[in-house]
Nucleic acid binder design. Structure first.
Lengths: 235, 235
DNA sequence: ATTGCAAAAAGTGTCGACAAAAAATCTGCG
DNA sequence: CGCAGATTTTTTGTCGACACTTTTTGCAAT
């Protein structure tokens, strides 16, 4: 659905989208070299627009580059994932605070409706980690929009979106966490409905802290996928 | 002094630095068109590395771009400046919190020493806005380093540094504010010395809130430079 | 004189090419 | 057989060129 050649969009812009997708899909794994000739051939474009896309992902901390050595996909050690969650806690906490000041009744209703749908669906088929994971991103994005702060929105939805997507791969969701996340989302919406900035920020921060702690636990107890079990991380 | 051809750095990297400086110096004013041919000629480089630098500043929200229309320096309306301060409050608050957990005795001593020097200097020549403005940036950067969080550091010292620099031009510093900022810095250092994360975050947030409110006031009461006096802000 | 349209100029987006550096390969020696 | 050095190959960084858009200029008609 994104394949159509839109004149209003540039090759460099679509290269950014495609490269982002390649990374999120795991085709380019963490630490892998981002070869300009190879990707240019693959995308059927020249290196100039590709390089612009690479520079942008570099600016987003998704790629790391050393002059003359090329770019590589960032390697998210457990320590780095924790640091990213700390940033999220700060920014999304403020997002919730600002949203509580400016959210409309209609938006509160939309959030409530979304939660209700999720609850109904979950009572049918159980709290699947897949469902929660999909909706979680929408939930956070929606609240960001409610903050009416273009810089907070840009940060969460553009700058950090890819990085957060990479972090999610480290999060081995367990069903219990899916249910807890649902409950926490409810608390956040309640605080927003009350137009209580302090409570909204606190609820959001606790929510993200809980995600982080779950992540830390899953790293220490590797199981299904992507478990690098070498080294325990001394720094 | 920056003209020497350093082999370890690329033309694109120095183009980023030079373009940043041009914008911060006000040679390219907010809203001004960023002409690729003109800047390329001025920097003595081709458009390719210049475009990479432009894309990076775009990613940092310093430039805004529309496809086929080119890039322009962001216009920081009072509303946008406030939004940026909100982001700063969130991120720097968390920086202070994390720094309080991890700061060393030596670093606390360095901060205290810096404040003492500033106090001594100010008792000689008074609290100049220039002195405070210069040291303020160092103060915040230093504490960011103490957070030991590379993403928080990168955010404040790279991503947002230029944008914050642009915001500073909107801040018409008054001597009273310079003194108050000094006092607030002292409170932050006290909290860091106590290893009190809650207090450190609170003190930092209050400090940035105070800066923001001073900015809002100076916008409503235009004096020397760049005073947009339309609208009082209804939200 | 002003408005509308057409032609020219300038600018952006993209490409291919080249030099220098880094990586890979091959070779010779211990 | 392994390792160090030299050579080839690949890749990065940069440049100039071209097509297509946008903008500006010029001209004519109402």
């Amino acid at each position: 659905m994104l394949d159509e050649l839109d004149d209003s969009t540039t090759v460099a812009d679509s290269a950014l989208a495609r490269l982002t997708q390649v990374i999120l899909d795991g085709e380019l794994k963490p630490g892998a070299k981002v070869s300009e000739p190879e990707l240019a051939r693959r995308f059927g474009i020249s290196r100039a627009p590709l390089r612009e896309a690479i520079r942008r992902l570099e600016e987003r901390s998704v790629l790391t580059r050393a002059p003359r050595l090329g770019a590589r996909v960032v390697v998210l050690s457990p320590a780095k994932v924790e640091q990213i969650f700390v940033v999220r806690e700060a920014v999304e906490g403020m997002i919730a605070r600002e949203a509580a000041k400016l959210i409309t009744d209609a938006e509160v209703a939309q959030l409530r409706e979304s939660l209700a749908r999720q609850k109904a669906r979950s009572e049918e088929i159980g709290f699947s980690t897949f469902l929660t994971r999909e909706l979680d991103s929408d939930f956070h994005t929606f609240i960001a929009q409610c903050s009416r702060n273009e810089f907070l929105i840009k940060f969460l939805c553009e700058d950090y979106a890819t990085l957060i997507g990479l972090c999610r791969k480290h999060l081995r969701q367990v069903p219990e966490r899916a249910y807890r996340a649902f409950v926490e989302h409810g608390r956040i919406v309640d605080a927003l409905a009350d137009r209580d900035p302090d409570m909204a920020e606190l609820a959001m921060r606790r929510h993200i802290q809980a995600s982080r702690q779950m992540m830390v636990a899953s790293v220490q107890d590797p199981g299904s996928e992507g478990g690098r079990r070498r080294r325990r991380g001394t720094n």
